[in-house]
Structure formats: C-alpha cells, structure tokens
Design a protein around this nucleic acid. Structure first.
Lengths: 225, 225
DNA sequence: GGAAAGATGTGACATTTCTCACAAAATAGT
DNA sequence: ACTATTTTGTGAGAAATGTCACATCTTTCC
C-alpha cells in the first residue's frame, strides 16, 4: 500500500515535524474510508479504538441529551475527530455524522499514543488543539444559552458563511430540525425565524441554497439577540 | 525555600512518576497563595503566564457571555486550573473565582511546558484530563439547555452533595443569583424553585445550610426535567 | 412512476420563564 | 453599632418558545 500520509493534510496541517519512520508507522496502520452525507462516522455508546482524521468534508458532532439529540458543533476537514471521546473514555461519548461527502482515516489509538510519546512537537500540538476546543465549547455554550432564537440563527448562518464554506452563498447541509437541535429550539421556531430573515431581505433561499444579502445586519442580530 | 511540592497533592494526584530533578524544578519556581471567598484567582481578559494548581478549596469557572456572566462549572481541590486558557491563548478566556477559602500554586508556564516535554507520563495524564473535561463540558451544556429549571436546580444540589461536598448537608457557597448564572435562569426563578423544593420536603434550608431530605426524588426531578 | 418517508410551512394556544417593582433580611465596612 | 450594600422573598403581567394539528412539498427507494 502506498503511504498516503506523506502528502496528507493531516501531517501538513499539524505543522509538526515527523520523522520518516513515524510517517511509516502512520501510513502502515491506517485505513482511508469514504462516507456519504448522513453516514455515522463515530457512534455514541460504541467501543472505540481509533482516532479519526477527517481529510475531506464536513461533519456534525452530536450527543443524546436528556430529551433530544444535541448538536455540539460542526467541523470541516482537515481536523481530528473523536480525540476526547477516544482518550477520555473507551466508549464513545458522542457521535459524529457526515453532513457532506467525507473522507477519513482511522488511526489506531496505540499508534497515535506512540506518536504522542515519541514526538513532543506533535503532542504539544494536540494538547493545544484540545485546549482551544475546550475554550470554544465554553464560549459557544454561553452564547447559545444566553441569546435568543434570532441571535442564534444568525450565528449559525454566519458560521456557515464565514468559517465552514467561506462564502456568502452555500448549500445548507442541515435540515431545519438539525438547526433546532444545534441552537436549542424547535423546528417550527427555526422555520418561522428563517421566514422572517427572508421577509426582511437578510437572506435569500432557493431550496437549500442560501445567499446572505445583508451580512452587517446579520452580525447585528447575532450581537443583540 | 522548602520544596513543598514533594508532599503536595498536585504530584500525588497526578499519579505520575516525577524525577527528583523535576520536582526541584517545580518546587523552585512556584508560589503558594491563599485566597478568600470571592477573590479572583484568574481574571478573564488578562495576560497570563501561569498554570495554577488548586491545592485546597473550591472555585467557580465563569466567563462573560453576551448578556451576563456565565458560570461554566465548579471545581474543588486538587485540580489544575486554567490549562485551556493558559495554553490555548495568551489572554485568559475565562475567570476563576474562589467560592471557599482556597490555596493555590502558581506554576510558570515555561516550567510546566518543560515538564510536559520531559515527562511523557505527565503529558499523557494532562492530555487525558483535557479530554475528560471537554466531554464533561459537552454533556453539561446539553443537559443544562434541555432541562428546565427544576431539573437543573436538582442537578446543582446533587452536584454539591455528591461530588463537591460528598455529604447530604453542606453550606451553599453560591448566592441564588450565582446559581441562576450557572443554570441559565433568573435569580427570582431560582428562589421560587428552591421554595418549592422546601415546601415539598425535598430539602431543608437554614440560612445557607442545605440538607437534602429526599435524594431519590431529587434524582427523579433531575432526570425528568 | 408511485408510494412511503422525511422535510417544510403555518395557525392557535399553552407554558415557562423573564422582567419589573418593591420589601425585608442579612452581611460587610467604618 | 450603624449605614451601605448585597442577598433574598414575592406578586403580577409580558414575552418568547414550545406543542399540537394539519397541509404541502421533496426525496428516496422499490
């Protein structure tokens, strides 16, 4: 098998120096798999022995809450998936589902641990990533719970436009009830708020195709809402 | 200065083997400080170069949200404080405030990084801690946003009783408005719900002294809503 | 190509919680 | 010991969302 890791983003992205032998190790022990939209990449409640690297695509991280499914965040390639759930616990504590066509590598956890132990740069990098995502989790949670519907919906739209697709025009990869599960609202409320945004000329929607017409206003709603 | 680290919980707790020279390093570079209830240990928005180890006491982790202060969690000694905020960003992204008399060590971040690099056990331990707290953050956030007031208040009381004080009788270290900022509710609502719990014979309160009378029922309320 | 499943649009109404207003109690500071 | 400040208790009405009930649309899959 050709060692795909050598030109894989997962290494480039880490901006970490890896010795050839370490790349060998990685290359010899992983499997690249494709997922379709809606496919489960990591399933909550299942025993896990792999860290996953998302090479291409976009995925939602979600877990089952007391009364419904809670979407925690959306992530796009390139990124690691399931670090906390694989290290923190043998059993997956959350699910990850592809929301667009995706491509991932499964990396055996023992190999991953070996790399962490051998390569201090790498382990410092991972540590930093974990710190950042914990901070992000705190911020997002505070923001979600304190803002009301319109503010949260504006955040979601801005998140898509600015971080995930980096464009004012994109195909919404979530259903309205998914968005509800993300921002803690009912499907109907999301629907009504979207209609308002359209009526106010803030966005345009043709099917799943969203165009942001007035980003300034959206940012204002995000702040004040 | 005597090297207090040798018999400090921070080392014991890590269950990590430290070489004598590493302990020296730690012992020679930290400062032990006492804090009173209400004192700020870490202040959001301020430049930081220290990791902090909470030796004794209890503290709240909180950050300023869009419309009010959000309490993220309560922690008790022994534990590290501010790892994410010190590693993830030079500027503190959250505050930590003592809620009981506390004692902490300030550990210079360069020393901490050196230890991480030198001691793989230690760095694996820290990595694991970070993973666990990220998982915990996700779970708590989902729980808080999906449950309603009584359920969340029950959770808070159980958290005090089962994890923080490990007793059915304890001195509530937060004001009612703090509790509100923790579970995303107004101060008045917390007050009313507490009164209900008292009226229902679930708890007793004499001033700040709380006694849990019916833990089973409290757990039921926590589950159902 | 047609049935079944899933996603979206929309109304009416019930609920929960917030907000404002004020009073009483407790705590801290001098 | 006596203010000043913070915390707690309580009512009444407002506001935001949730819930339920249907009527379309769309997509998926035999």
């Amino acid at each position: 098998m050709k060692n795909e890791c050598i030109d894989c983003d997962c290494v480039l992205r880490s901006s970490v120096q890896m010795k050839d032998c370490q790349l060998e190790l990685l290359g010899g022990s992983h499997a690249v798999v494709k997922f379709k939209r809606g496919d489960t990449i990591i399933r909550q409640g299942v025993f896990s022995t792999n860290v996953i690297f998302l090479r291409k695509g976009m995925a939602k991280v979600h877990l089952s809450g007391p009364s419904r499914e809670q979407i925690v965040k959306l992530v796009k390639a390139p990124t690691y998936l399931g670090l906390p759930t694989t290290f923190g616990d043998k059993i997956n504590q959350y699910s990850v589902t592809a929301v667009t066509e995706s491509e991932v590598c499964f990396i055996d956890i023992e190999v991953f641990k070996k790399l962490l132990a051998e390569n201090n740069d790498f382990s410092a990098f991972i540590l930093m990533e974990l710190c950042k995502s914990e901070l992000e989790a705190y911020r997002r949670c505070a923001s979600r719970t304190q803002k009301q519907l319109r503010g949260n919906l504006a955040d979601v739209l801005l998140e898509f436009s600015e971080h995930l697709f980096e464009s004012d025009r994109f195909l919404l990869p979530l259903s309205q009830s998914d968005i509800g599960n993300w921002v803690d609202a009912g499907r109907e409320s999301i629907n009504r708020a979207l209609s308002e945004f359209i009526a106010d000329g803030i966005i345009r929607m043709e099917g799943k195709q969203v165009t942001i017409l007035d980003k300034k206003l959206l940012q204002l709603i995000s702040q004040n809402g």
